[in-house]
Nucleic acid binder design. Structure first.
Length: 821
RNA sequence: GCCGGAGUGGUGGAAUGGCAGACACAGGGGACUCAAAAUCCCCCGCUCGCAAGGGCAUGAGGGUUCGAAUCCCUCCUCCGGCACCA
């Protein structure tokens, strides 16, 4: 046998070769045969990657190499989502400046990616903390400000005490900060927002056009939360302006027996002043405002309210109804005010019962519901009654639109859509992010930084003391500026942008990373966008993916790109899990749980190819899979065997034409299987097919029944098909088989459908649907032949004894079913 | 509660209307070796049977079909999302 398989040496050799040749470089000025594939760019964390992270990149690299061999000019860039809290926290903890910390992490992480044999077009590398990058965040912000898409408002916002900053709605999970887990407080603050709600309809519509996992699309639809309804105006006797109410059931307007306002509603305070219960109301408003999100949203939370003593007019009945403040009315959904229809809405019902408010049913199925006997709201159903002109209208969408028409005709309101989606709060009271380019002038107000002054640089000579808050506030050199309008002394905005702004357009920047003249190269974007295949974790199902879709639309409206959906196809890889010795349970692999496996040691011992083979073989990539140390050894053994069969085939002469032989047929069948599996990312079954192929080759080498040419060609096919999974070993053999160019640059093998089959097939014979025998027949054997063979078969004959064949079902090359009586 | 996904040997999984368990891992047996490691070969769903062979089996129950892990209905369990959103 030839020399031993030395993966460490091969890793070194081929990683250097690929790098020296800049194999992954793509000229993006040319869009011919383009394929843009992208892994979500990572945060350069201070801890080393574990094999769970590795799955994402290995899968991406295998896809990249496969697409490339299939003949596409494939772009596979990499960059760094380099702003964010950990670097700043590290600075507070250890005094290392965030930039230095981040740069060091990037270098280490890059080396780790390289050691896995991952190929990226590093000529397009970018880092979001680079002023050459983040200046375009600022430029975009200014354009959005001009169009009213970026704005400042004072509102109750989410405050994370642990992170000491506000958060977007999307970053609050179950009332807690998604990062730190701290309970989120509600504070009234003046903050910067992006008007994503204006794009709600377009964001929903676009979901129909992308090839994404259904669950991600469902999550986004849920998050946007569209509902159709109407805005109805209620005249309030103490106020000049009527109060608008959003409802999805305007058809129940005649059943509205009270009006309820969120305590945060701007009219609430004014009502309190005019109310005889002024003091009590003010205290109630204060108490509700101070409650945490956790309390406000908890399911057990009591519905609490207070009568303002002021009345409104039900616009349909003309009756006087009381105006209440209620804690269950949310300030930032709809109009922050509701009409209470206790007969047909469970929440309103509970509220009405608690405070003795009247209940007035307007839908009846058989008998009229008795308000006094009701123990719960009556579902909408039957027909309307006690509803004037609408009486007799059956429940359904027609009733709703009839009501809207009626309301609009009388000027009492209008049809409207409601969304659960809130505007994106982008300001952060932290240092390590893009400075928001605004100036506060005592005379002129809040003004944009002029374009020519961009970028507003993040100062790097600041002190990190922790509890004192954003170091930018302490940096007089940063804060002190002059007003762009009057020239007088002014102060800079010290909030920075949510880092999700950075990641919402980076995929475009890979096309012109060094371009200091513009944010996006529209021509190249036209040629290369959208990203054909995006790969990343499910944790960004809403956050990053929603923001990126939004910003892409904004860029379209700015005329910079001509598309709405940046990511045509999305793939979410499943997590890697492992037994956690601490808890005894199988859990997601993570540093904090202490159940990580480092790829570094495995690479040092078995080489990168083994880690790649096992990672891809572990299971279907979209599902979570449990890491097993023993499984790694299996991958290693397989590569060893591949090495052995290649070594045995090395000395054989390359054959001329493919002759028809069992091995050739196996090769073509394997090409077909691997090609199809790779197309649906199922490298685990592709590897299984290659394992069978390898064994078939070993047997053919032993038997001596195959020609040298067939053996040698099979070895080359094996090496080609295995390349996306195990690039180092396969490049080595490709070279030793006499090829002068990279295997990576070879053409993916094509299969001949006529050869991707065997000549003889096993025909299953069933009697009454049960398998009773198997026949070895020639492919394409006609039914009478098969039937004759089955009748002649001794085993099958015993099942037919004394029976009459009533019917036969014949599926050529597969099965013969004899139905007997 | 609503929506989405999943449930197959000891384990990861394969098969998406036609041989259930490919390919691996673990386990058992053997070869090589003074021995060990490495490597290679064989066995490996449950059950009845000396064997030949039979029966059962893809969360549970029903249905469609010549034939169901796969399609339909009812239910159970687990995972994920949304949920006081008017």
């Amino acid at each position: 046998m030839a020399e031993k398989y030395d993966p460490i040496e091969l890793d070194r050799k081929w990683q250097r070769r690929w790098e020296d040749a800049r194999v992954a470089f793509v000229d993006t000025s040319d869009g011919a045969d383009k394929f843009y594939m992208l892994n979500m760019f990572p945060y350069p964390s201070g801890s080393r990657l574990h094999v769970g992270h590795g799955r994402n990149y290995i899968l991406g690299d295998a896809l990249y190499r496969r697409e490339r061999m299939a003949g596409r000019r494939t772009l596979n860039p990499m960059g760094w989502d380099a702003f964010g809290l950990p670097a700043e926290n590290a600075a507070i903890a250890s005094g290392v400046p965030p930039r230095e910390y981040t740069t060091g992490n990037i270098a280490r992480m890059k080396e780790q990616l390289r050691s896995l044999g991952l190929l990226y077009d590093w000529s397009k590398e970018l880092a979001s903390c680079d002023p050459a990058y983040y200046r375009w965040n600022q430029w975009l912000f200014l354009r959005m400000w001009e169009r009213g898409l970026a704005y400042r408002k004072t509102a109750p916002v989410n405050w994370c005490p642990g992170c000491r900053t506000v958060l977007a709605n999307e970053q609050v999970v179950d009332g807690r900060c998604e990062r730190s887990g701290d309970a989120v407080e509600i504070r009234d603050l003046t903050q910067w927002f992006f008007r994503i709600t204006e794009y709600a309809e377009r964001l929903l519509a676009g979901l129909e056009t992308v090839d994404w996992p259904e669950r991600v699309k469902v999550m986004q639809r849920n998050w946007i939360g569209r509902s159709e309804g109407a805005e109805v105006f209620f005249r309030v006797d103490a106020l000049a302006e009527p109060i608008p109410v959003f409802t999805t059931r305007p058809d129940t307007l005649f059943g509205a027996t009270f009006l309820a306002l969120a305590p945060e509603h701007p009219a609430a305070a004014r009502l309190a002043e005019r109310s005889p219960l002024s003091g009590d109301l003010a205290r109630f408003i204060e108490r509700v405002r101070r409650s945490s999100r956790l309390e406000r949203e908890s399911e057990t939370g009591e519905k609490e309210g207070m009568d303002t003593g002021i009345t409104a007019l039900n616009p349909a009945t003309g009756e006087t109804i009381p105006v209440w403040l209620a804690n269950f009315v949310l300030p930032d959904y709809g109009t922050g005010a509701i009409m209470g229809v206790p007969a047909h809405d469970q929440r309103d019902f509970e509220f009405a019962r608690r405070y003795g408010l009247p209940i007035r049913p307007v839908y009846r199925s058989d008998a009229e519901p008795d308000p006094d006997a009701m123990t719960a709201a009556v579902p909408h159903g039957g027909v309307l009654f006690r509803s004037g002109d609408w009486n007799g209208t059956p429940n359904g969408p027609a009733a709703v639109s009839k009501a809207i028409d009626w309301i609009e005709a009388r000027g009492l309101g209008r049809g409207r859509l409601g969304y659960r989606l809130r505007d994106w709060l982008i300001s952060r009271q932290r240092y390590w992010g893009t400075p928001i380019p605004a100036v506060h002038c005592p005379d002129c107000g809040v003004l944009p930084v002029p374009d020519e002054q961009l970028p507003v640089l993040l100062p790097e000579d600041v002190a990190f003391r922790g509890a004192e808050g954003n170091p930018l506030e302490q940096s007089e050199a940063f804060v002190a500026t002059s007003c762009p309008d009057c020239g007088g002394p002014a102060r800079r905005e010290t909030d920075t942008m949510d880092t999700f702004v950075d990641s919402s357009w980076y995929y475009l920047r890979f096309l012109n990373p060094g371009d200091s003249s513009r944010m996006v190269d529209s021509e190249r974007a036209a040629k290369w966008m959208p990203v054909d295949q995006y790969v990343g974790g499910i944790e960004h199902a809403i956050l990053h993916l929603l923001y990126a879709r939004f910003i892409c639309r904004v860029l379209k409206d700015l005329g910079l790109v001509d598309l709405e959906e940046p990511f045509a196809r999305l793939f979410n890889q499943g997590m890697i899990t492992k037994l956690n010795p601490a808890s005894g349970k199988i859990e997601k692999m993570s540093k904090s749980r202490g159940n990580t496996v480092s790829p570094d040691e495995l690479i040092a011992r078995f080489g990168a190819d083994t880690v790649r083979v096992y990672t891809l073989f572990i299971g279907p990539p979209e599902k979570e899979s449990e890491w097993s140390e023993e499984g790694v050894a299996g991958a290693w053994r397989f590569l060893q065997r591949v090495h052995d069969v290649c070594a045995r085939a090395e000395a054989l002469p390359a054959g001329e034409r493919a002759e028809d032989s069992p091995l050739t047929r196996l090769a073509h069948r394997t090409i077909q299987r691997v090609t199809e599996d790779a197309q649906r990312f199922h490298f685990h079954t592709a590897v299984a097919a290659l394992m069978e192929f390898q064994r078939g080759m070993a047997e053919a080498l032993d038997s001596g029944e195959e020609s040298p040419g067939a053996l040698r060609r099979a070895a080359e096919t094996l090496v080609q098909l295995l390349h996306p999974v195990a690039p180092h070993l396969t490049e080595e053999w490709w070279e030793r088989f006499g090829h002068r160019t990279f295997l990576l640059d070879s053409s993916w093998p094509a299969f001949d459908p006529a050869l991707a089959t065997t000549e003889r097939v096993t025909l299953v014979v069933q009697v009454n649907g049960k398998v009773r025998g198997r026949l070895d027949v020639e492919r394409g054997a006609p039914e009478p032949d098969a039937l004759a063979l089955a009748r002649a078969d001794e085993k099958i004959r015993t099942w037919l004894e004394g029976k009459e064949i009533a019917r036969t079902v014949y599926v050529p090359d597969r099965l013969l079913n004899l139905v007997v009586r």
